[in-house]
Nucleic acid binder design. Structure first.
Lengths: 244, 244
DNA sequence: CGCCCACTTGAACGTGTTCAAACGTCGTGG
DNA sequence: CCACGACGTTTGAACACGTTCAAGTGGGCG
């Protein structure tokens, strides 16, 4: 079954302009679409995939386990992103990929991606760039994990998700869908669930945002940015990408 | 002045096999060579470089400052690596690059790299892959920063540096040059210098290694790996890259 | 109604930080 | 040759941030 890679085109065009043939090439990428349930593994550490996954709807995440039961979430992925694009050139997965929410995922054979890039060499740079932005986000998270205290880490994460979702049109007037439990937040930010909870309370007392029921509402963008020490430069969204 | 990109070829060939023309193309890359002193900034956050840096001799590091004086070191780079290859596609630097030790650095114009890849399309994948391994190392560091305690973080770092240096022939019988102060170690691992010192003592009492005078000697590789929970898979060195 | 799950709270504990001072080595200059 | 300063390392003590364990709350859904 083949489907619509629209979200991919929208995501890429939020940064670079595409030629009509390139857009067409992307749109007609042979996709195998599957609807997955929440918390379902897609690719596992050690696998050697022959395809990559395009998030069409919902959220995905990448993680690594250490010591068997401690989990570090490495990234959250939103519609239009290809979380395991790196498997194009790194044959073995060094981490796992799973859905966060129910999600519609499009699977693309590596061969199809290589063919597409051979036909439209400029797209190579576009995809490469996507993986570089991925790495830039890792770097920023490293700074958070290593050098920011819990409340700032949380605030920073909220800023990032808002800017990213806004860039693809999924922020509606200061509100985004962010269906992340406090435990997942902790696993992403290197915190225990308990401390995540307490740090959230501390932030809530400042009325910077409302975070409940999987929705994040920004009440005070400037204040949140300040609490987070947030500078969107690392997201490399041409404009500078500042929002509300 | 032009010079020898030998270390680059050696580094790339430690993973993929290159065709003679490709090797030749790499060797004749127009390089501007400069000898830099220790702790010298090369590119700064916010810059928009038109060239990338190849480490020929010595060590380089990438870092980010937060709150003005707290530093997170993001990566250490060894001969043959191009620390800011990402600037090929991300125009603005989101972090800084500096020397760790005295170092010989070759500067390569982006144009020259683009031309080379246009002539030898397979090299595009090779360079892309380098940036993907970079990202894989970031991911592993995130796990350390978020989920490992201080001694394991240090042990893990030692394992990684040993394997990487060994892969390019810079490990001599269980010994590597690792000219990193305890403060720099802390900045890389998200620790204070004091706690780094105490954790090092704890590790020393296990006789896994000797670390002094900028040299690391591995006494018990298996023991060190165990203490670090180290699995070299994430370095993506074809063979599996296990050493002493 | 009852269960599950996420969130919340409390209390004790532990890892890591901060501040301050001292030690040793090495290179410089008197 | 020795004094001095710089720098990295080491130590101590008080403190803070974050963890762990355990129990309790509350809403949603079968």
């Amino acid at each position: 079954m083949s489907g619509d890679a629209g979200p991919l085109v929208r995501k890429l065009e939020s940064i670079v302009e595409l030629a009509p043939e390139e857009r067409e090439g992307l749109r007609t990428l042979p996709l195998t679409i599957r609807d997955l349930r929440p918390q379902q593994d897609i690719v596992h550490e050690g696998d050697r995939p022959t395809q990559s996954c395009l998030v069409l709807e919902g959220f995905a995440l990448r993680y690594k386990l250490v010591g068997g039961h401690r989990r570090q979430i490495l990234a959250f992925h939103i519609p239009g992103e290809i979380p395991d694009l790196q498997s194009l050139h790194l044959k073995t997965m060094d981490h796992s990929l799973a859905t966060l929410t129910a999600a519609r995922i499009g699977f693309i054979q590596h061969r199809a991606l290589h063919d597409l890039m051979a036909r439209h060499p400029r797209l190579t740079g576009v995809f490469w760039r996507e993986t570089l932005i991925d790495a830039a986000i890792f770097r920023e998270w490293m700074v958070g994990l290593g050098r920011r205290r819990a409340p700032a880490r949380i605030a920073h994460f909220f800023c990032e998700m808002f800017v990213r979702l806004d860039a693809i049109g999924l922020a509606k007037d200061r509100v985004i869908r962010l269906p992340v439990t406090q435990e997942e937040l902790g696993d992403a930010l290197g915190l225990s669930a308990v401390h995540t909870n307490r740090s959230l309370q501390e932030l809530r007392s400042q009325n910077l945002f409302t975070f409940e029921g999987g929705r994040l509402v920004i009440n005070d963008w400037e204040g949140l940015k300040r609490a987070a020490d947030f500078d969107p430069l690392y997201l490399h969204q041409g404009s500078g990408g500042d929002a509300p």
